[in-house]
Design a protein around this nucleic acid. Structure first.
Length: 563
RNA sequence: UGGGGAGUCGCCAAGUUGGUUAAGGCACGGGGUUUUGGUCCCCGCAUUCGAGGGUUCGAGUCCUUCCUCCCCAGCCA
């Protein structure tokens, strides 16, 4: 395998590949370590695809591990949703689901060991005092007055901390490293804090909780992780990661590697900011289709395949990056173009009457679900004298290059007949087109004639009397600016939320067969885009489709250029 | 003005230890095919690798100086 995939190994896969070849490890072990304090977003998807992807590619394993060391922020709801999201993305941790909280007892023992080795001490200073003594980026910190307590005293105090003898914030356990280290992380970092709080898994068993830096590396070692992959902000923490493991008798020696987190244009990819959008009501929830959460993307109609393709396309490196949202959209189109059944749906209807078509006549056309993929089968579409077409597909005064319907012009009704516009009826008050009259050519049944006639335009339609009616939700980008975090003076990123990111069309005529759609089933509405039956609101009694992404529209581009 | 990182086409991103004309994708522009102005297929798109010096027959790849950007001062992760 190493030889066949040699071509495009990113820097992490290159490291793994070399470690395997050199025999440093018999197999790779990675882990995806979310904190269960929020929903997963597309940035996590990148990490999931990386960690599970590497394990899969090199025949190793990837654990799912919840980093639940902070009882005041974590909830069961999140551990459930995270599992669902990872599964939905197509990855499996088999029986290897772990919780950092499962290691609390071991972690505690390791902490006592550090104390015994003279490498940790209990500090009685307040948070405020500790902060002040830490120094600054350019000045060293100063030692805590409690730094040189005896091992026995430290042990006794730490045990009493565990026993609940002290209130929150009264004391902490600190590593005894170097208050003048140029790396602030190494200035006697806090290892344990007192928190009389209920933990979602350990309940009230503990009132002291270990910090991330102490917990993460040891958890990795206990699980025999070989490559502990995290984002660049943890680069400074690597020195501490190594310090802890080098000073404790851990069962294995993992290494930490960092990669650049994902940024995307027109959205924010940060749990904290996503929470604000939800709690302040800018969106309807974590799974709002405008949200870049996994739940949001899923409800929007993104497929696991498209997200995995995206992760593969953007690659992995160490340079700061902001990927254009168009890249994500292109991945969805690429995936769905091959697999989405086509259907006819009209978003903004205008009535068409075919005057030479018998009033009581009806026909059924057997239409392919995908012109290029006959294996996707066919469905029946009824045709009759009165139809709906898209308002956009008719212009009383056609612009140059327009080859849709206009007075005197002939177009093809997809899969049906050629029709020619003979008349236009308008509202005398508003001037709006209320009805278009056409004649059809019976010899063009199926949408084709052998007389060499050239009909450039093909438009979609829905038989008025046979239409099913659906609510269609048109989504657009969440923010109006590519980088909503680049705020002007006195503003905040929420000021750039796109007020038009959602447009609801409550009553759209769609072809009959769509009434059978099931939640999360995707379609291409021909000439419009990819749509998905809403996961929550769609049902046989209320059809609701979300636009996942529009089709490329070179006519719109051309028309815009001309304007 | 401490430490740790990063700078290759508008956006991602390859570029193994220096050796012809600097991958690929997205975006963009042009053309062809087409019963979706979709798809598909062609073609174009960095004499240049943050900038300046230097080493070398030869440098994106080595040395050097400088510039810019990101991360770190939670008892968050």
């Amino acid at each position: 395998m190493s030889d066949t995939v040699k071509e495009h190994l990113d820097f992490l896969r290159t490291i793994v590949d070399e470690d395997l070849k050199s025999g440093k490890y018999a197999s790779v072990a990675t882990r995806f370590p979310p904190e269960p304090n929020g929903y997963l977003h597309v940035g996590h998807a990148k990490s999931i695809c990386l960690n599970f992807g590497i394990a899969k590619q090199f025949g190793g394993t990837c654990n799912l591990r919840f980093d639940d060391t902070n009882p005041s922020k974590e909830e069961q709801e999140y551990v459930d949703s995270i599992q669902a999201d990872v599964n939905w993305l197509g990855f499996s941790w088999d029986d290897r689901m772990y919780f950092a909280s499962d290691y609390f007892e071991k972690l505690y023992e390791f902490a006592e060991m550090l104390i015994q080795r003279g490498l940790a001490y209990v500090d009685d200073q307040t948070a405020e005092q500790i902060r002040e003594a830490r120094g600054t980026l350019t000045e060293p910190g100063i030692d805590s007055p409690y730094r040189n307590r005896s091992v026995d005293e430290n042990l006794e105090l730490f045990r009493r901390m565990r026993a609940g003898d002290f209130p929150d914030g009264a004391r902490v356990l600190r590593a005894k490293i170097d208050m003048s280290s140029p790396n602030i992380v190494m200035r006697d970092p806090t290892l344990y804090r007192i928190r009389h709080a209920h933990h979602h898994r350990t309940g009230d068993a503990w009132c002291i909780y270990p910090m991330y830096d102490f917990t993460h590396c040891i958890s990795d070692a206990l699980e025999h992780i070989t490559h502990s992959i995290c984002t660049l902000e943890f680069e400074n923490n690597r020195e501490l990661y190594d310090w802890v493991l080098d000073n404790l008798p851990v069962p294995s020696r993992p290494r930490q590697y960092e990669f650049a987190r994902l940024n995307l244009t027109y959205v924010v990819v940060s749990k904290r900011r996503l929470i604000q959008l939800v709690s302040e009501g800018h969106v309807t929830g974590w799974d709002d289709p405008r949200m870049p959460t996994i739940q949001g993307l899923r409800r929007r109609g993104f497929t696991p395949e498209s997200i995995r393709l995206f992760a593969e396309r953007i690659g992995v490196a160490r340079a700061a990056n902001t990927v254009e949202i168009e890249m994500l959209e292109a991945c969805l189109r690429e995936d769905l173009n091959d697999r989405a059944p086509r259907a006819l749906a009209v978003l903004r209807p205008v009535k068409v009457v075919i005057t030479n078509y018998p009033e009581d006549q009806e026909e059924i056309f057997e239409c392919p679900n995908h012109t290029e993929k006959p294996e996707l089968g066919t469905r029946q579409i009824p045709f009759s004298r009165e139809l709906y077409i898209e308002q956009d597909d008719f212009r009383e005064v056609p612009p140059k290059g327009y080859h849709r319907l206009s007075p005197g012009k002939e177009v093809r009704l997809r899969h049906a007949y050629y029709v020619t516009c003979t008349d236009v009826l308008k509202d005398p008050e508003t001037g709006d087109v209320t009805e278009i009259r056409c004649t059809y050519d019976p010899a063009t049944r199926g949408g084709w004639s052998n007389d060499g006639r050239k009909v450039k335009g093909t438009i979609h339609w829905v038989s008025a009397k046979h239409a099913a009616w659906a609510e269609v939700r048109l989504y657009d980008r969440l923010f109006t600016k590519p980088d909503p975090m680049a705020v002007e003076e006195g503003k905040d990123f929420k000021d750039y939320v796109n007020p038009n990111a959602l447009e609801v069309l409550p009553n759209c005529p769609v072809e009959q067969s769509l009434a059978q759609a099931t939640p999360e089933q995707f379609f291409q509405f021909e000439r419009l885009g990819y749509f998905v039956a809403d996961r929550r609101d769609h049902g046989p009694d209320r059809l609701v489709f979300n636009r996942s992404v529009g089709l490329r529209d070179s006519w719109a581009k051309q028309e815009k250029k001309g304007a």
